[in-house]
Computed example of a mutant assay.
Amino acid sequence: MAEANYHSETSNKLTQENEGKPKGESLEDLLTTLSSQIRSSDWLEKNTPEKFASENPEVAQAFKDAADKSAEKKSGGDQG
């Protein structure tokens, strides 16, 4: 529920920021806005890999297994 509120607040901020701006912002404008929001957000501080793993152990294990398998392929491919 808090996440939904966060997204709603973010959407409202974007709407307010974009009022008065011409339609069809450039990609550079959009990337600048995204970059600014990422820098000012605490989402990464709250949503750590450890938190994800504790809340989603099966998914976390699947990611780990896939990463290990990928690493094995890369290290095995370099030798041949």
Rank of each mutant, 00 (worst) to 15 (best):
N47Q: 09
D29F: 07
D29E: 14
L30Q: 09
K74T: 11
A53L: 07
A71V: 07
E25H: 03
G80V: 06
P49V: 00
E19D: 12
L27D: 11
K73W: 08
Q37I: 05
T32N: 14
F52Q: 03
E55W: 06
A4P: 04
E9A: 08
Q37H: 10
K21Q: 09
D65M: 07
E58M: 09
I38K: 04
G20Y: 02
S41K: 00
E58N: 13
I38P: 02
E9W: 06
N12F: 02
L44K: 11
Q61N: 13
Q79E: 14
L14M: 06
L14I: 02
G20K: 03
S70D: 13
R39H: 14
A62E: 14
Q61Y: 05
K64M: 09
D29V: 01
Q61W: 01
S8F: 10
E55P: 06
G80N: 09
N56H: 15
N18L: 14
E25P: 02
Q61G: 00
S35D: 13
E45N: 14
M1H: 09
N56L: 03
S75A: 12
D68Q: 12
S70P: 05
E45P: 05
L31R: 10
G20L: 07
M1G: 06
L27C: 09
S54C: 07
E58D: 15
F63H: 02
G77V: 03
S70A: 15
E55K: 10
G20A: 02
E50I: 05
S40F: 00
Q79P: 05
P49L: 07
E9V: 01
S26Q: 05
S35G: 15
Y6W: 11
G24I: 00
A53P: 02
E3G: 01
S11N: 07
Q61F: 03
K73R: 14
N12Y: 05
Q16P: 01
A4S: 08
T15E: 03
G77P: 03
Q37L: 12
T48K: 03
L44V: 11
K46I: 03
E55N: 08
S41W: 06
T15F: 05
E58F: 08
E72H: 00
E28N: 11
N18C: 03
T15M: 01
N12D: 09
T33L: 05
W43Y: 15
S36Y: 09
N12Q: 12
E17I: 04
K23I: 11
N56K: 10
K74F: 10
S75R: 13
S11L: 06
A4Y: 01
A4W: 00
G76L: 08
D29N: 08
F63N: 05
S41C: 02
N5E: 15
S35L: 10
K64D: 09
Q61M: 13
K74Q: 12
K23R: 15
T33G: 03
F52Y: 15
E55G: 03
K73H: 10
L31E: 10
Q61T: 11
K73T: 09
A53M: 03
D65Y: 00
L27H: 08
A71S: 13
E17N: 01
A53W: 05
S41T: 00
K23E: 14
S35A: 14
A71M: 11
E9R: 08
L27E: 13
E3I: 04
G20H: 06
E45S: 15
E19I: 04
D78Q: 13
L27Q: 13
G20R: 04
S70Y: 12
T33E: 06
D78H: 10
A2C: 02
W43H: 11
W43N: 00
N47A: 06
P57D: 00
